[in-house]
Every structure is written in structure tokens, then in C-alpha cells.
């Protein structure tokens, strides 16, 4: 579905991505975790064509949609207009198909996007990306600045989209626990390089990853975040 090989991105003389490779299969949910400044956002920006790579290849079978970090809505426009503009390149500009999946968006479709809460805005941002009928969706910092209960709700929507429509999801997260809980596979990126990859469960049991990203507690020791917040 999405195949990235040996990707290099430079900003002037600084190397932001240094030979990154990753793969997301059809209907897969994959996480990319790493600290601030590791190159996560640069990678998604390269995938969506905002940043021009200096080397390497990106292959996307079908359409990729990008939910940017910090929501980035059109604040003056209504929720419905925001959604409709997500379909700029496609023929189907009817947002009703999004309201079916996320009924809450239908309820507030006349409100200005800028007036919504952070969680609602993130919902609109995901909805806008879905309007392009993507085959793979890359979500940059889904959980940043949002309450855990809101994140859990968003995560449920994503899991549903993934299982019902077979949409591939690349989740870029600083919150490694959420990422490992939600995704089957994960990559760990540091200073522009992939330093670890594999099954989420195995990764979260690895001592180094646990120390760096999970506060020293390995994944198997605790119940998952989803279960906790769902209560």
C-alpha cells in the first residue's frame, strides 16, 4: 500500500531524514513513534508532497490523506465547508458519508471550525482527510493536547474505519503507549533514522524501547490504555 525506501530529506545542510524505509500493507495499522524532532512530521510531509525529498523512493498504491499535526482547520469556515474542501480533488463532495461514520460532525456541521474544542477539531481534521476517500491515511500526533477520553474515542473511530473499510493507517505518535496499543506493527524513529521496528507487543516488551518511551514499564505489565479509558 505504502512503501518508503531509503528516504532522505534535507533542510539546507541539516539532514532531517537519513535513509528511512517503512512499509504499510493493505488494511494495516502501523505506528511511527519517536521523540520530538526525530523527523516524524518531516516524513509525513514528504509522503503528502509538501516536502521534496533529496533521495529515496515513496510508492503509494492509491490515495494518501494526511491529517496534519495541530489539526490545521480552516477556522473561519463551517465544519461542513471544511469537510467539503477535503474533497477538492475528488468528485464526491457530499459530506453525508462522513456524518454516517462520525455522527457528531453532522450535528455541528454549521458551526465555525475555529469555535470547536480540540477533540472536535481533531475529529473534523480526520473527517476532512477521509473526504478524499483515501486508501491510506497518515495521522500526525493524533493525541497531542487532547484528553485521554477524547483520544480513546478518536482511536475507536480509527479502529472501526480500519476494520470495516480496510483502510490502511499510519499513526505518527509521541505517545508510544497509545500507538502500541492501537497498532499491530510499529517503527521507532530517532534523529532521522529508523532504530527499531516490529510487532507492537514485542517492541513494547523490549527494555530499551520501554525505558525510552513507556516510562520504564513494559507493555505486558499493564492493562491497555483503551481498556482503562473505556471504563
Amino acid at each position: 500500500m505504502l512503501q518508503v525506501d531509503d528516504l532522505v530529506v534535507r533542510y539546507g545542510s541539516a539532514v532531517a531524514l537519513d535513509g528511512v524505509g517503512l512499509h504499510v500493507g493493505r488494511g494495516e495499522m502501523v505506528a511511527l513513534v519517536g521523540p520530538n524532532g526525530a523527523g516524524k512530521s518531516t516524513l509525513v510531509n514528504a509522503l503528502s508532497g509538501v516536502v521534496r525529498p533529496a533521495g529515496g523512493t515513496i510508492r503509494i498504491d492509491g490515495r494518501l490523506a494526511h491529517v496534519p499535526e495541530g489539526r490545521q482547520l480552516f477556522a473561519d469556515l463551517s465544519v461542513e465547508d471544511n469537510l467539503r474542501l477535503g474533497a477538492w480533488r475528488s468528485r464526491n463532495r457530499d459530506p453525508r458519508r462522513i456524518y454516517e461514520v462520525m455522527p457528531v460532525l453532522g450535528e455541528m456541521r454549521r458551526k465555525a471550525a475555529g469555535s470547536l474544542s480540540g477533540g472536535q477539531q481533531q475529529m473534523v481534521a480526520v473527517g476532512r482527510a477521509l473526504m478524499a476517500d483515501p486508501d491510506v491515511i497518515a495521522i500526525d500526533e493524533l493525541s497531542l493536547g487532547l484528553a485521554p477520553i477524547v483520544v480513546a474515542d478518536l482511536a475507536r473511530h480509527l479502529a472501526q474505519l480500519n476494520s470495516e473499510r480496510g483502510m490502511a493507517i499510519l499513526l505518527i505518535e509521541q505517545n508510544a503507549r497509545l500507538a502500541f496499543d492501537l497498532c499491530q506493527r510499529a517503527y521507532v524513529i530517532e534523529s532521522g533514522r529508523i532504530v527499531a521496528e516490529g510487532d507492537s507487543g514485542e517492541l513494547s516488551r523490549s527494555p530499551e524501547v520501554a525505558r525510552a518511551y513507556l516510562g520504564g514499564i513494559t507493555g505486558s505489565d499493564t492493562e491497555t490504555l483503551l481498556e482503562r479509558t473505556a471504563e
Binding site: 480552516f74 465547508d81 474542501l85 463532495r93 478524499a132
Partner: peptide
């Protein structure tokens, strides 16, 4: 109009407009 809204979108957030393909 859709194009009019797209102009507003570019004014309000050019980065997001690009991500939407505008």
C-alpha cells in the same frame, strides 16, 4: 461557491489547503 470557499481556505490556512490538494 466551492471555489470561493477554497480561496477563504487558502487565506485561513495555506498549509492545510495544500494538504487537501488545493
Amino acid at each position: 461557491t466551492y471555489v470561493g470557499k477554497a480561496l477563504t481556505a487558502c487565506s485561513s490556512n495555506p498549509y492545510a489547503a495544500r494538504l487537501s490538494g488545493i
